[in-house]
Nucleic acid binder design. Structure first.
Length: 510
RNA sequence: CGGGGUGUGGCGCAGCUGGUAGCGCACUUGUAUGGGGUACAAGAGGCCGUUGGUUCGAGUCCAAUCACCCCGACCA
């Protein structure tokens, strides 16, 4: 009976979803505006006084915190520990690895002085020119250099390996254009940095962590992702190989949601990190680094939300259920309040994150709208009529459907409902991705698909950087990744007509 | 750095050919309301981005300047 109910609404919601998806793709030009308004209205974040920097508000931070805790647990379960390294990096460290400095040089904030003073001509506070630093400090855009400089001191023997560390930190990249969560001047992230005795072990670590990210995306963000390898030109500055997960947003653009790099011995050589192996020989260590950032918040927002506001997967919602009491007279309130508190305790006992909103400064309708903006997965309303009938009204955010539930054993029903919502969000995102993944076998077909349909395009590529660059210039589409599980398939490059052994994934991207 | 746009109460905006600064939302108080953003009434709140010019008089015209936003180039 209970599950029959879900089956029937499943049908309804598919029609709603497909309409919604069309709605989004037909007004791509409004998408940025929709996104910005959503972030503000759902109370997630806003721009601060500092150019391109955002303030993450308590509600938005709550979601990030849940992501952090979940990922942190997954890192610990795979043998990693947390540590912390400085925010400043001496300029000389930064330039030790040639490709690395080349890749980041254009977007670095630099500290040149360490003191201010009162201006003698009354112009207020000015930089004290006498307090110029001998060597400038770079505000970290990523921490490889300072970490590898430290690892040199920590690693002597094969017994010190592997070294598996992660840090939760902020980094600064002075980008030209910013967007809330997707590309801000400062952002929060985690960066894992590991050192290994052998190439094989480091490569294994790289793919293992990519798998952790893909699992997190699937099970918590309710987001299906492609896993793959980056092309030469899209690689991380200083990496031998970059692996990534890519997700599809509702406007048909791809978003890189996480990266895992195999760094080879590049940083070990640049920072002289060696160990003595069992044969008493000096060897350079093998390295990886991997990270995800507050950009995941952007992915979460763009993947599931609709015109009514944010839609959160239950597993990441700071508040999974909100209870709204409805009453007119004081004596009604007492009964309703009693029932609501009882339900709250039942839900809490099941480990459900529940909020009882008994503020009498806002009306029920106002609260309904507010929790919809904020994407709370399930809303329970209780009024005098429910007290009489022994029911409650349950509304689910993903489908916007309402139903009356018998109040007996409510916690179990809600528990199932939350699981169901989590699964439905994933299914919906998966369906959307399937619908928006196309094959293209000719240049005309490719251009037409990128321009008019969007989404991922699977096409043959001759493997050269020149072709990749030309395609990018002519269509704005880039190679998002070379799929890990790609099947061998003979074909001709859509641009050059040269031989190709497998299809790669193209898309316009954030 | 190129191309376009905007600066007016907390937010979103109107203010034409110069003549006493306005609207909506939000805020405060009161009364009635309360199952989808309640209604009415009364309030509080503004060097019109900055500087200079034209004028008897500038939010409005002119010049300079600063800031922000959008579209490119750069990027997670």
């Amino acid at each position: 009976m209970f599950f029959d109910y879900f089956h029937c609404i499943l049908f309804k919601y598919y029609t709603i979803i497909s309409k919604m998806a069309k709605n989004f793709t037909t007004r791509k030009e409004d998408y940025a505006k929709w996104y910005n308004e959503l972030v503000i209205k759902a109370d997630l974040a806003e721009y601060s006084a500092v150019r391109g920097c955002m303030v993450i508000k308590p509600y938005g931070y709550g979601i990030w915190e849940t992501m952090q805790q979940t990922l942190d647990r997954m890192f610990k379960d795979t043998g990693h520990s947390n540590a912390y390294f400085p925010i400043f990096i001496p300029k000389s460290f930064f330039s030790r690895e040639a490709a690395h400095v080349e890749g980041f040089a254009k977007e670095c904030a630099v500290v040149t002085h360490y003191r201010l003073k009162n201006d003698e001509n009354g112009k207020g506070i000015v930089v004290d020119e006498n307090a110029k630093l001998e060597e400038e400090l770079i505000v970290r855009p990523t921490s490889e250099t300072i970490i590898w400089d430290t690892y040199r001191k920590w690693i002597q023997s094969y017994r010190d390996l592997p070294l598996l560390l992660n840090q939760w930190a902020n980094v600064v990249r002075w980008e030209m254009r910013t967007r809330l969560f997707l590309r801000t001047t400062e952002f929060l992230w985690q960066e894992g940095h590991t050192a290994h005795a052998t190439r094989e072990e480091a490569e294994e670590e790289t793919t293992k962590m990519l798998e952790v990210y893909a699992t997190f995306a699937r099970e918590f963000l309710a987001l299906p992702v492609w896993k793959g390898r980056k092309s030469e030109s899209e690689k991380f500055a200083g990496a031998v190989e970059t692996y990534c997960i890519e997700a599809l947003m509702q406007d048909g653009k791809a978003l890189q949601a996480g990266t895992s790099h195999f760094l080879g011995q590049n940083f070990a050589k640049a920072f002289d990190v060696k160990y003595l192996d069992k044969e008493n020989k000096q060897q350079f260590v093998w390295a990886t680094s991997w990270g995800v950032s507050t950009r995941l918040m952007g992915a979460l927002i763009m993947a599931h939300s609709d015109d009514q506001g944010l839609v959160l997967p239950p597993k990441l919602a700071p508040e999974q259920v909100v209870i709204v009491p409805i009453y007119r007279k004081e004596e009604d309130f007492e009964k309703v309040n009693e029932k609501a508190l009882q339900i709250k305790e039942e839900l809490k006992a099941k480990g459900i994150r529940v909020k009882y909103d008994d503020r009498d400064t806002y009306k029920p309708g106002w609260k309904f709208a507010e929790y919809e903006f904020k994407g709370v997965p399930v809303r329970i309303a209780i009024g005098p009529k429910d007290i009489e009938k022994g029911t409650v009204e349950v509304a689910r955010r993903d489908t916007l459907e309402k139903a009356f539930y018998q109040a007996t054993d409510l916690a179990t029903k809600i528990e199932h409902l939350l699981e169901n919502i989590q699964q439905n969000l994933y299914n919906k995102a998966m369906d959307f991705r399937e619908e928006n993944t196309h094959k293209a076998d000719s240049w005309e077909e490719f251009k037409d698909t990128i321009e008019n349909r969007g989404g991922f395009v699977l096409a043959h590529w001759d493997g050269t950087a020149e072709t990749e660059e030309k395609i990018k210039q002519e269509t704005k589409a880039t190679i998002r990744l070379i799929p890990l599980d790609a099947k061998e398939e003979k074909g001709k490059c859509i641009y050059s007509g040269n031989e190709s052994n497998r299809r790669v994934v193209f898309a316009r991207a954030y």
